[in-house]
Simulated scan of single mutants.
Amino acid sequence: MTIQLQTIILIFIRITAFIVVSPGFSIKGLPSVAKIALSMGITLAAYSAVPVMEQEAATLFFALLVVKEVLVGIAIGFITKLFFSAVEIAGNLVDFQVGFSMGAVYDPSMGINVSYYGKIYYWLSMCVFYMTNLHHIVIKSLVQSFQYMPISSTNIGSFGVEGMMKLLGIIFELAFNLAAPMIIVALLTEVILGLISRSVPQINVLILGMPLKIVASFVIMLILLPTLVKNIQEILPLMVKYMNEFLQSL
């Protein structure tokens, strides 16, 4: 096996592992052939920018490099997945307050049970991801990862558990901040229903409460939609920042 062929294989493996994990490039309904074709296209485009291996690797060392490339690609893709998950978690928090969490159904495109606002938030984030050309920046950072972590290197670095726990804390903080306006509306609706039940005991609050919260959340959602899109537009670019920080720590 020549040096050039080994280089192409290692580049292809890292990019494929990234695409399989990252939600922005891989939807469960997308055929595997399309994923492989996308990976190969990015590989051929990135080949000229990737340093070629100095010498041909032995079989055992090449197998070790393959495992390393899979792990690096999955790690980078997982970081991008976390930020889409932050937006989805925000939607799930809203669903829990409004009462839609009871109507969660299985979504084959995401492979999990999602409720209504969770799905709306997720697909809004996907639209923002492509409309702002953020996918181009992510692909550029993926290609730059070969500069930070050469394909011939086996040093994984020291990002460690501490870095992942810090990143997970940031994800939950972003999710709560994104869901806060709708959660406040739902809580205010609960307070209003409590006042109504005290003022007019004859009204059945249990029957009135559910449709009232749904209508209120829907109206506020439409009013706050531009602000929501703007907030998502500020959150998603952070994935590139943390991708680069992770790669520089390797």
Rank of each mutant, 00 (worst) to 15 (best):
G163C: 01
I156R: 10
M131P: 03
L174W: 08
I139N: 05
L187Y: 15
M126F: 13
F176E: 10
S153P: 01
F218P: 02
R198S: 11
L188E: 08
Y117F: 15
S153Y: 03
P181E: 02
M164Y: 15
G160E: 06
T154V: 11
Y121F: 15
M182D: 04
L206M: 11
S158H: 13
L134W: 05
Q147L: 11
A175C: 07
Q147A: 08
G111L: 04
K140H: 09
V128W: 00
I183Y: 04
L193T: 05
I192F: 09
Y116T: 14
A104F: 02
V191M: 11
R198C: 09
Q144P: 02
Q144T: 07
P150N: 05
L193N: 11
P211T: 08
V200A: 12
F218M: 13
L134A: 06
F159N: 04
V191A: 10
G160F: 03
V205A: 15
V200W: 13
I207R: 10
M164E: 06
L178S: 09
L195V: 15
G111A: 11
A180Y: 14
G111V: 09
P201N: 06
S217E: 06
Y117Q: 07
F159L: 04
L168H: 03
T154W: 01
V143T: 10
I171T: 11
H135Q: 09
F129G: 00
Q147M: 10
M110F: 04
P108T: 00
I207H: 09
P201M: 12
V143W: 04
S197R: 05
V161D: 05
L208W: 09
M149W: 09
G194P: 06
G111I: 05
G194Y: 08
S145V: 03
L188K: 07
I170A: 10
H136C: 01
W123Y: 15
V200E: 14
C127Y: 08
S125L: 05
G118Q: 04
W123L: 15
T189F: 02
F146W: 02
I156P: 03
